[in-house]
């Protein structure tokens, strides 16, 4: 294969392309050597280890208690993040409110829920029945119309959801507050001067712009939440981690069980990261002159670029 010279003769004298000796990068070659050896050792361990039974890992990966635990883990994450998002937005707006009672109580909430370990809060919600045996609906300090037993009303799953969600709200509140304060004050002034009310300004103008600042740490929180749900095994809720541990203690396949559930967590966080990427891209509208490429567009571009590079290389 040859490349024919079809370029028109230059009208003015165009200088020759620079042909310089490239800088050598011996460090790169050393890094390649070290990493190759380490990778080979790791693969050797994976393939020859007597504890790692890949067929067992496969079985545990799709075992019915693991799948059921996975469902609970996912459910917990989604519900807790929903509570966290709604509560966090509410707390952030309260914290920025001019009303000292609202901002003060939001501050107090964040102080308490951020200041105690989430595992302790998890135990609290689980054992709250001891402090508050019944929950009733009625006039405070007056007559009560309906009462429930706390332990009937708040089961294990609800306690776990509340604990994780209410804790998350405290963190999300600070993230949302940072987002809101990052939006230029001129935006609020412009919206007000057009006759938009404070609520409309917040919903239509400020929050959509704040999202650019909110989404990356909120994505962090979501991924972190997925893994934090594994704490609920401490209150005997059968989540993904607990399901893996149960199998391990019954079959003594400790390592395969850990690998199997780790693979599930990895798979889920990968999906979440991808989702975060697209949400970020959506809120980047107008912030950059052109939208960034999607991962697929990137892959395609790289493949085409690689192909071009190889064919061009072949011609030389």
């Amino acid at each position: 294969m040859t490349i024919s010279q079809t370029t028109a003769p230059p009208e003015r004298c165009v200088p020759e392309d620079i042909q310089a000796v490239a800088v050598r990068h011996p460090g790169r070659w050393i890094a390649v050597a070290v990493i190759t050896v380490l990778a080979a050792m790791f693969i050797h361990l994976l393939t020859t280890s007597s504890v790692l039974h890949w067929d067992v890992i496969g079985q545990i990966f799709t075992y019915k208690t693991v799948i059921a635990g996975l469902g609970r883990t996912l459910g917990l994450m989604v519900l807790a993040m929903l509570i966290g998002l709604v509560g966090g937005n509410l707390l952030a707006v309260m914290r920025l409110s001019k009303n000292p009672v609202l901002s003060g109580s939001a501050w107090l909430y964040i102080w308490v829920f951020r200041g105690t370990p989430v595992l302790v809060q998890l135990f609290f919600w689980n054992f709250l029945g001891a402090l508050v045996p019944t929950v009733g609906l009625g006039v405070p300090f007056g007559p009560t119309f309906v009462t429930w037993n706390y332990n009937d009303l708040v089961g294990l799953f609800t306690a776990a959801t509340l604990a994780l969600g209410l804790n998350e709200a405290a963190y999300m509140a600070e993230i949302v507050r940072a987002g809101i304060t990052s939006v230029d004050g001129g935006q609020t002034e412009a919206a007000h001067s057009l006759g938009l009310t404070q609520g409309q300004t917040l919903r239509r103008i400020v929050l959509p712009q704040a999202m650019r600042v909110i989404v990356p740490p909120a994505g962090n929180e979501t991924i972190s939440m997925l893994k934090t749900t594994s704490l609920v095994s401490a209150i005997a809720l059968e989540d993904l981690t607990r399901a893996g541990q149960d199998i391990a203690s019954r079959t003594l396949h400790q390592i395969p069980a850990l690998v199997a559930i780790s693979l599930w967590y990895l798979l889920l966080t990968s999906v979440l990261s991808l989702g975060q990427y697209y949400i970020e891209r959506y809120y980047a509208r107008g912030a950059d002159r052109a939208l960034p490429d999607t991962p697929w567009q990137n892959v395609r571009k790289n493949l085409i670029g690689f192909k071009r590079a190889t064919t061009a290389g072949g011609a030389v």
Binding site: G186, Q187, E189, A190, A191, S193, G195, Q209, R285, G286
Partner: peptide, 15 residues
């Protein structure tokens, strides 16, 4: 609503 305002730094909604 009845008063329009134009700012030095435009303050258009970037999104």
């Amino acid at each position: 609503r009845d008063i329009g305002m134009v700012f030095q730094r435009f303050n258009l909604f970037p999104h």
